[in-house]
Structure formats: structure tokens, C-alpha cells
Design a protein around this nucleic acid. Structure first.
Lengths: 193, 193
DNA sequence: ACCTGAACACCGTTCAAGT
DNA sequence: ACCTGAACACCGTTCAAGT
């Protein structure tokens, strides 16, 4: 099979899951594809753009929010609906990140650098804008940071635990802390003004 | 002058400010001290612990919260005082991070790895615990993630802007978004139950 | 057009040997 | 005790040369 950008991204994702972000090198990706490292640069400009493409692939599995909010007429259930949707957006994002090793760190750096074509905040921002929130941009950015920061820590600690660097790690506790953090923020979103 | 752990940390911090985290290598630190790279390993076990020590140094400049809350008798001003203190804690942390290049990224990874002896969440957690908040741990962790995530992005974008990768960057807008994000979260903290 | 082979300029870390 | 010199096993990226 001929080398292609898609095949490179795919091999990269496999190596990410198997060896982690720290051991994801261009040479290793090339090896997995039975090719010299230099060959990759015919299909991908550099390592960072490859990492961004892998981050995009991971984010592309994010479910789309139901559009119920749009058809809502602005009655008393509007704010509660927004809260629910924002909360499930955060939990969906976490779930998507947990499906691949070091995904949170990868997505966080790709997002900070402004690379990557999949914007995970798009849905949440639209949701807030539709419901008339005065600061959709800053609000969804803050929630994204909260989610990414939590999952980065969660995935790092889980790996250290798996590697025997004991440091007791309780997945259920991590999830509860996540829920509390998201709920706290979403309460603040509801209490605008 | 004889080589020492403190001198190495100091040289590392200088290199961080001058060249950034990506160019902070053991060899470069050794060069700055006029010594072979291997010599560093007599004073520091590895690069990660050096980075953690630099992160600690940066965090040690964090101002201590006034203890007013403790002497408060729990009257009607208690919650407002907690909100104010939590808000200023977040802003102080951001200010401390902005004094050194890539400080947010450095502190974030040091914190995620559980390295570093300075815990930036200690004060905020105590504050919440004293005021009877049911979830001090999860709450302060979420706020820390929000702050770190924001400043990582802020510092990354500022550098890319400085390097001419235009991508318009407005420091004032970044600060406003930070304020909005923190205010939103703190509102949610106040609305517990 | 696409890939190889080989190089360039780096890394973190280890360790015998010197002082 | 503390540091040098040199090595080991890697990196990302470039580029002439081949097909």
C-alpha cells in the first residue's frame, strides 16, 4: 500500500495508544509503516502538524449536541436546558479523550498552538450564543480548559499508577471531582448578570 | 563558584525566560554554568525534577492570602469574602505565571505529574474548607485547571504573535476572558447546594 | 511523484576515569 | 566528593540521489 497522509495519521494514533505521547516519534511512525523517516515529510510538513491531525481525529468522534435548544421558544426551561447541554458536552468531551492514551495532553497542546481544524468549542459556543449568553466565547473557553486540565491530570495519574509509581489513584474519585468541577462552573453560567 | 542545585535551578530559570521551555535542555543549562552536562546529574536526579524545581521557584512568589476569613464569625459577609478571596487567588496565580516565559505550561506539567513541593492549591483549599464548602478539593482543582489552561493558551499565543505568526493576539481581550471565566466559576462556587 | 540513505545538529543519561 | 570526556541510544529535519 502506498504511503498517504491518512495512513500516517492512523499509524500515529496506534503508536500513541501503544507507547504514549512521549514515545511517539517520526522515526517510530515511519518504522511502523515500513518506510524511512524522511519519507513522512512528503505527506506531512512536520511533527506538530501530524500531532494536530491526530488530535483532530480523536475529536472527530465527539457526538453532536441535539438541536432541541434552537426549537425552544425561550420559556422557563431554557436555562435548565442550556445547563444540561453544557454539562453533557463536557462529559462527552471527557469520554472522547479517555478513549486514547495521552489524548488530553495532545488536544490541549494542539489547541493552545491554534493548530487543528476541529474546534471542540464550536458547539458549546453556539449553544450559549443561541440562548443569549453575553460571553459565549470566554465561557466555553473556560469550560474547555477545566475539562482538558482535569483529564490531563487524570490520564497522567492513571498511567503513573499503572507503571507502579503507586501514588494511589482512584478513577471513581477522579470522575466525581470532574462532575463537581463541571457542575460548579455550569451553576455559574446559569447565574449570569 | 562551586556547582549547586540552587545554581542549576537558577540557570534553568534564566534559560527558560531567554529561550523558552522547548529550548531548555540539560546541555544548555550546563553550558551556561561552564560545566559538562553530566555534572548536573550529581546535583539533580533528572531533567523532570529540575523542571519541577523551577516550577516551585516560580510558584514561591505567590502572595499569601490574608487570613481575614478565619477571624470572620460567619456573618452575612462570609460567602462574599470567600468569593473575593478565591477570585484574587486566581488572579494572583495568573500574575505569577505571567512573570516567566512558558511558566503555565511548566507548572501544569509539573502539577499533573505530581512533582513539585509547592502546592498552589493549598491556600484556596483551606479557604474553602474553613468556610464550610462541601467539596474544597474538587473545587480548587477545577479552578486551578481553569487558570492554568487559560494562561498556557495566553502565553503560547503571545509568543506566536511575537514570532510574527501573526494570528492577531489581544492581551486585553485575553485578560477579559480570564476575568469572565474566573467570575463564572466563582459564582458557581457561591451557589453551592 | 515518491522514497532511500545519509547526513546535520541536536537530545537525556550513564559512567569510567581523573582530581 | 565532584567533575570531565566520551559514549549510548536516541531525536526532527533536510536533501542529494535514485526509481
Amino acid at each position: 500500500m502506498a504511503l498517504s497522509r491518512a495512513a500516517i495519521v492512523d499509524a500515529g494514533l496506534t503508536i500513541l495508544d501503544e507507547y504514549g505521547l512521549g514515545d511517539l516519534s517520526m522515526r517510530r511512525v515511519a518504522d511502523a509503516l515500513g518506510v524511512q523517516a524522511g519519507a513522512l515529510y512528503y505527506h506531512v510538513p512536520n511533527k506538530q502538524s501530524l500531532l494536530a491531525a491526530i488530535a483532530d481525529q480523536i475529536l472527530s468522534s465527539l457526538p453532536t449536541l441535539p438541536e432541541r435548544v434552537t426549537s425552544d421558544d425561550g420559556g422557563p426551561g431554557r436555562v435548565e436546558g442550556t445547563q444540561r447541554h453544557l454539562t453533557s458536552w463536557a462529559h462527552d468531551l471527557r469520554a472522547a479523550l479517555l478513549t486514547h492514551r495521552d489524548a488530553a495532553e495532545l488536544v490541549a497542546s494542539s489547541h493552545a498552538l491554534g493548530l487543528g481544524s476541529v474546534d471542540p468549542t464550536a458547539e458549546g459556543r453556539d449553544l450559549l450564543a443561541r440562548t443569549g449568553h453575553p460571553e459565549p466565547e470566554a465561557t466555553v473557553a473556560a469550560l474547555l480548559h477545566l475539562v482538558l486540565g482535569h483529564v490531563v491530570e487524570e490520564q497522567t495519574r492513571a498511567q503513573m499508577h499503572a507503571l507502579g509509581v503507586v501514588e494511589h489513584f482512584d478513577p471513581a474519585l477522579a470522575e466525581r471531582h470532574f462532575r463537581v468541577g463541571v457542575a460548579t462552573f455550569v451553576r455559574g453560567v446559569a447565574a449570569v448578570g
